[in-house]
Amino acid sequence: MALRLEIFDLQLFIHIVEVSSLTQGASRSAISPAAASTRIKNMESTVGARLLNRTPQGVTLTSAGRSLLSHARQVIQQMDHLAFDMCDFRGGLRGQVKVLAHTTSLTEFLPQALSGFLAAHQDVEIELQEALSDDVIRAVSSNEVDIGVVSTPVTTGALWARPFGRNRLVVVLPSQSEFVQLPSITFADTLTAPYVGLSAESALNRFMARVATQLGGEYRPRVQVSTFEAMCRMVEANVGIGIAPISSVERYVKSMNIRYIGLADSWAIREHILVTQHLEALPVLVRNLAQHLADYAQTHLPGPVELSYGNP
């Protein structure tokens, strides 16, 4: 059975679902709510099933709607891929690539990894956002984003996956901390200490909170900041202790009166993985960027992290 659904209507449907509101979804699509309602009713008539449940609080998906949403996202992404590939015939790569990454890769590895590619392709734009690794896998698998970077432990499933460096989380300490003389410490043993953390929305903050809950404790930083540098400044001022990747801390320990020790937990050693759909299914732009990042990681990013006792 052939369904005649317009690309505009599929994008409208996605917009409505993303904001759980027909009115706001219509606004995103630059049409009136009445026109949006008519288009959704026509879609429901075409597929022969209700797609949305309408309530005073907004709209929710029916079973048929959930199925359509998955297909709609794939169709829209394929249209974007088609547009990307056609650009190649007009000379040079151009377009936008969506990249989702966990905190450490986003702050430590991706800036340099992306800079060379962007310098070589002036008409390329990259939308870079932060998320937990499990959320990155889901977004790449459902074609919501083009490329992701995750950290172990995580299951990549059928996605194309390549190594993207390694790092290690350490405990950042004021120089006078009672923990300074220890070679390492478990995260559980630090939970009674006051913490300086990243913002509540950061993937690292959410990850640490989840680990603390699994340990039967609670991770509630008394101060939240937006960067690892600000975290180290707060630690230097004896506000609390912090958790940060060793690559960040080593930059600041030389100029600040802080120390660090290793986390003894196995999850503190982070293997980073680049993921995307299989290369042959990707548009040229996304495929070239994914291959560039994989090649960059192989030649520039760190191997296994060794952390011995002692600080500068």
Rank of each mutant, 00 (worst) to 15 (best):
G91W: 05
F89W: 00
G92D: 10
A64Q: 08
C87F: 03
G92Y: 13
D80Y: 05
T62H: 02
V59E: 02
F84I: 14
Q96N: 14
F84N: 05
F89E: 10
V75A: 02
G92I: 11
L69I: 12
R66S: 01
G95M: 05
M79P: 05
L93A: 08
Q77D: 00
L69Y: 12
G92M: 07
A83Q: 07
R73K: 14
Q78Y: 06
L68N: 01
T60V: 08
Q78F: 02
S63W: 13
T60W: 11
R66H: 07
Q96I: 08
R94W: 12
R73L: 09
R94I: 07
D85Y: 05
F89P: 04
L68Q: 00
G92A: 11
V97S: 04
R73Y: 00
D85T: 12
M86P: 05
S70R: 14
Q96S: 13
A64V: 10
L68I: 06
D80L: 09
S67H: 09
G95W: 02
Q74S: 10
V75N: 01
L68Y: 03
R94P: 00
H71A: 15
V59W: 06
S63E: 11
D80V: 06
V59T: 09
T60H: 08
A83H: 01
S67G: 09
R90M: 00
L61R: 11
S70I: 14
G91R: 07
C87E: 02
R94Y: 10
L61Q: 12
V59S: 00
F89T: 02
G95E: 01
A83P: 03
A72G: 08
G92F: 12
L93D: 02
L61T: 08
C87L: 04
D88Q: 15
Q77A: 10
I76P: 00
C87P: 07
A83R: 07
G91H: 05
T60F: 06
V75Q: 02
G92R: 13
H81T: 10
V75G: 03
L82S: 15
G95Q: 05
H81M: 09
R94G: 07
T60P: 03
L82N: 14
G95P: 02
D85R: 12
T60A: 07
R94V: 00
G95S: 12
Q96W: 00
L93W: 14
L68E: 01
C87K: 03
S63T: 13
V59Y: 11
L82P: 03
T62W: 08
M86Y: 05
D88C: 15
S67D: 13
G65M: 08
D85C: 10
L93S: 05
F89Y: 15
T62R: 10
R73M: 13
R73S: 11
R90H: 03
V97M: 07
I76Y: 07
V97G: 06
Q96E: 14
Q96P: 07
Q77M: 04
G91A: 02
L69E: 09
V97R: 03
I76Q: 07
S63L: 14
L68G: 03
R73G: 09
D85S: 09
D85P: 00
Q78H: 15
R66A: 04
H71I: 13
L68H: 00
M86R: 15
R66T: 06
F89D: 11
S67E: 14
T60E: 05
L61D: 11
M79K: 12
R94C: 10
F84M: 15
V97D: 03
Q96T: 13
A83E: 07
A83L: 06
V97A: 08
L69N: 12
L61P: 04
Q77C: 01
A72L: 13
G92C: 08
